[in-house]
Design a protein around this nucleic acid. Structure first.
Length: 222
DNA sequence: TTGTGATCATGT
DNA sequence: ACATGATCACAA
């Protein structure tokens, strides 16, 4: 068990030590066995890096490094440095009216400080050969904050007004709402089109790949 | 069931 | 080719 880092400097130091290593090397250091692929272990890489950096285990709804207020996100990138996937942020509260202010929202709080860990992870690359990149700490700048808030407020308004079943992934410029469930039969409480309670597919907020691509570009240059 | 970690795989 | 919608594993 790797203890949590006591401060940001220690966290960043640990992250730097991982840069350049393959997932196979990290797995060996942790005495973990890598699966053949991620089809049945989609969160495997993220959880392994959590462990390597000393993040608190478990699936609690709080940052990975609570005392530092830092969220850890692995980001799969192709050989040109572009994200291969959108980035999951958190589940969407479909009924809780106390979270209707942006500053109080889970999305805002989770994205206050993110440690991005790029992983060169093209699908043709065997898992063990994928390489960890240089991690960096990110805080949304005012423009990014504004874009996120705009999308969030637009999506939340639709949710509260009973329009959840009309929302698709294309809504929003940088933030999107998509299914986040075990399968299409999973249900959770929400507001219907006439304001009545309904059951619907659980959703989560995701950062679009174009947005995380811009974050990477600002960090590493063109 | 809801939250964590995400990627898969199909439609466009 | 790429984003959207669907899905997988596990903890509490």
């Amino acid at each position: 068990m790797i203890l949590p880092p006591v401060n940001v400097a220690e966290l960043m130091y640990r992250a730097q030590q991982l840069a350049g290593l393959t997932l196979g090397e990290v797995a060996a250091n942790l005495a973990l066995t890598l699966p053949q692929d991620l089809k049945r272990d989609k969160g495997m890489v993220g959880q392994m890096l959590e462990q390597a950096l000393g993040a608190s285990s478990g699936s609690k709804a709080e940052p990975d490094f609570p005392q530092l207020g830092i969220e850890l996100k692995t980001l799969p990138v192709d050989s040109s440095g572009k994200p291969l996937e959108s980035t999951y942020v958190c589940v969407a509260a479909l009924t809780d009216l106390s979270l209707q202010r942006w500053q109080d929202s889970w999305v805002c709080r989770k994205l206050q400080q993110v440690l991005w860990v790029p992983v060169w992870a093209e699908r043709r690359l065997p898992l063990a050969e994928r390489v960890i990149g240089s991690a960096f700490l990110w805080q949304p700048d005012p423009q990014q904050q504004r874009l996120l808030q705009q999308d969030w407020e637009e999506l939340m308004e639709l949710i509260v007004l009973g329009g959840i079943n009309e929302i698709r992934g294309a809504h929003g410029k940088v933030l999107q709402l998509r299914p986040k469930a075990a399968n299409a039969k999973a249900l959770t409480a929400a507001v219907g089109s006439d304001g009545q309670p309904i059951q619907t597919l659980p959703r989560g907020f995701y950062l679009k790949a174009n947005f995380t691509a811009e974050i990477l570009q600002r960090q590493f240059g063109i």
